[in-house]
Design a protein around this nucleic acid. Structure first.
Length: 579
RNA sequence: CGGGAUGUGGCUCAGUCUGGUAGAGCACUGCGUUCGGGACGCAGGGGUCGGAGGUUCAAAUCCUCUCAUCCCGACCA
């Protein structure tokens, strides 16, 4: 492809509305343009990369035995009412009415539609298992779209759904998808990690997220340095440790703490360490007031409370709610005499007594509180966030906390949708059984962003070869010189015939412009054809990732290039002779 | 939905406080010089100053409303 006839409008400056690197570079490299908040057009370069990603995903899905189909984006409300999500999904579901005033929505995900198809067409155990997937545009009316392709409202997703006769079958399907996902990310040339995760609003019991590792990632991973354990911090189990100290404190008493409502302020004012204070956090769990207690130096994990109570949502209470429930302004809540539906204490609080807690009155705390003696704790459970210094819950080893970007998620759905929508089959005995489901998503457009977050430098993108829109940037520095142009064309044709995709920069521009654009666009291999090199019988080659340059002889170019290309691929951890 | 900020040629921004006939750089068009890391000269084209209403002799600038976008918190691929 000749760049002079291509459409890749590059920008010297980053657009003002872009915050993260991937967004800035995607726009600057002429790959995407924003249409409106969270909605992007994919320009030719961007679309090529997306197709590369989709191609790899498709290939691995097919290999794993999944069948590709395409479901509608516009969906009728009644299906969603049947599953119960019309009410529960919230504002993210973009709803509208058609000309006949029928309620519709734009599909944010497709469990309902696929389950509807399967329930109609699948009647017998002989037809199971089956796994179907699509690669399609989704729309989620995000509260706050941001970061370019990282969190758009309209985005491209691969979603697969498996249907099995029983749990054992579903487990097999899940494993197969898990393995296929690993293959996808390996083949994309990305550094990633599968982690245990919470299942969120999709439902189901169990899930794994696939994280692309990048310092700029939004998610924090709790990962063991000694074993395979890795989990989203929201999910990571905290294993109890430390010995019990049964010393019973004297009767608790009130200490005035005027205007001291944070743990730090109270600790400093009373001269006690933060880990001697109990933080009482009020949550609104499905409308119920719940108090959650953690040590002053710890952080509450509301997701654990939500799961513990089997609730739909657990949100921090609003200041008015706190005042209504505790009788005190925010900052003075405590478990003693507290009238809420449940008081849940973190397991760690069971190890010791003699705490400082809020007194449920303005400007006052209690000291020497025994939770056993003085408070009505409903239960002790693991409800705090894992932290630096906590041991690995699996092996007791050391944990680290790298950041990542969620690009894939595999769920076991169980019978959540099949029971709500009555998707059943007849077993060998002619007995009706619920189909057991799983669902599996990959954020195709998010991968493009994540890939750039992981692979870039100050000059631009550094595309892994499998994701790059083209493989080679071939710069003709002297497009007006016959020799350079002839050589460049020869090389272009040679490489194209070997299956590589070459972007030939034949524009009548100064060399500096071409170098800058090539680095910006980030194709993994750069070949530089110019008068200077040709006079010495060489073509210069540059590995975009390492910046290392090599000189390839014009005579015997094909062989020299092949060897050099294998080196570049090896640097990406990709097999020689690839593509 | 709360909190903060910004809307001025295609892009990045100045001008707004202190009202007085719209600017710069990049990009674009033409000509010339230049040509291995985002060249230079000359000549050009292009802007209802987000929108509506108001104050004023006069509004990008002041007031009111409105729309849009971005950033910080609760969701998710």
């Amino acid at each position: 492809m000749r760049l002079s006839r291509y459409f890749a409008p590059t920008l010297k400056e980053a657009p003002a509305d872009a915050e993260v690197v991937s967004h800035k570079l995607l726009v600057r490299a002429g790959m995407i343009r924003r249409l409106t908040s969270g909605v992007y057009s994919y320009l030719p370069m961007g679309w090529r990369s997306l197709n590369k990603i989709a191609g790899i995903v498709r290939r691995e899905m097919d290999r794993a035995g999944a069948l590709e189909l395409l479901l509608p984006t516009v969906q009728p409300a009644d299906l969603w009412q049947e599953s119960g999500r019309w009410e529960h999904y919230g504002k993210e579901l973009l709803r509208f009415r058609d000309r006949n005033d029928r309620e519709c929505c734009l599909g944010p995900t497709h469990e309902e539609v696929i389950t509807d198809i399967v329930r109609r067409e699948i009647k017998s155990y002989r037809q199971l298992p089956v796994n179907m997937y699509q690669i399609q545009t989704k729309f989620r009316d995000e509260i706050r779209p941001r970061f370019g392709l990282m969190r758009g409202r309209e985005f491209i997703m691969k979603d697969a759904y498996s249907f099995d006769r029983d749990d054992a079958g579903a487990e097999k399907s899940y494993r197969a998808m898990f393995e296929a996902y690993k293959q996808v990310f390996i083949r994309l040339g990305l550094r990633f990690k599968p982690v245990e995760a919470d299942s969120g609003s999709i439902g189901g019991s169990f899930s794994h997220e696939f994280m692309v590792l990048a310092q700029t990632g939004e998610d924090v991973i709790a990962s063991c340095t000694d074993c395979d354990y890795a989990a989203n911090v929201e999910r990571a189990v905290v294993r109890g440790r430390g010995a019990k100290d049964a010393t019973v404190p004297p009767a608790f008493s009130t200490a005035p703490t005027p205007g001291k409502h944070t743990v730090e302020e109270v600790a400093a004012f009373l001269g006690v360490p933060a880990d001697g204070i109990v933080k009482t956090i009020l949550l609104d769990v499905d409308g119920q007031p719940v108090a959650a207690l953690v040590r002053g130096d710890r952080e509450l994990n509301p997701v654990k409370v939500k799961n513990l109570m089997n609730a739909n949502s657990a949100a921090f209470a609003a200041p008015e709610q706190v005042t209504a429930w505790t009788g005190a302004p925010v900052g003075f809540a405590g478990p003693v005499g507290l009238k809420v539906s449940r008081i849940i204490a973190d397991s760690e609080l069971e190890l010791r007594e003699g705490w400082v807690t809020g007194a449920n009155a303005a400007d006052a705390h209690y000291i020497n509180v025994s939770l056993i003696r003085d408070a009505a704790i409903t239960e002790y459970a693991d409800i705090r966030m894992i932290a630096e210094g906590d041991p690995c819950p699996a092996c007791g080893g050391r944990m680290e906390f790298p950041r990542g970007i969620e690009v894939g998620h595999v769920f076991k759905l169980g019978t959540k949708y099949s029971s709500a929508m009555r998707a059943v089959y007849l077993d060998e005995n002619g007995k009706e059984q619920l189909i057991v489901m799983g669902c599996y998503g990959i954020g195709v457009s998010r991968i493009l962003a994540a890939c750039i977050e992981q692979n870039h430098d100050e000059n631009g993108i550094m595309f892994p070869p499998p994701v790059a829109p083209f493989h080679v940037s071939l710069l003709n520095l002297d497009p007006r010189a016959d020799e350079a142009s002839a050589r460049a064309q020869e090389i272009h044709d040679l490489l194209e015939s070997s299956g590589l995709e070459v972007l030939l920069d034949d524009r009548d521009e100064r060399p500096g412009v071409k170098f800058k654009d090539a680095d910006l666009m980030g194709l993994p291999m750069q070949l530089i054809v110019g008068g200077k090199g040709l006079a010495r019988g060489i073509v210069e080659a540059k590995d975009r990732r390492t910046g290392e340059k090599a000189e390839l002889p014009v005579d015997g170019f094909a062989a020299a290039f092949a060897a050099w290309k294998d080196m570049v691929f090896a640097g990406w951890g990709l097999p020689a002779g690839g593509i």
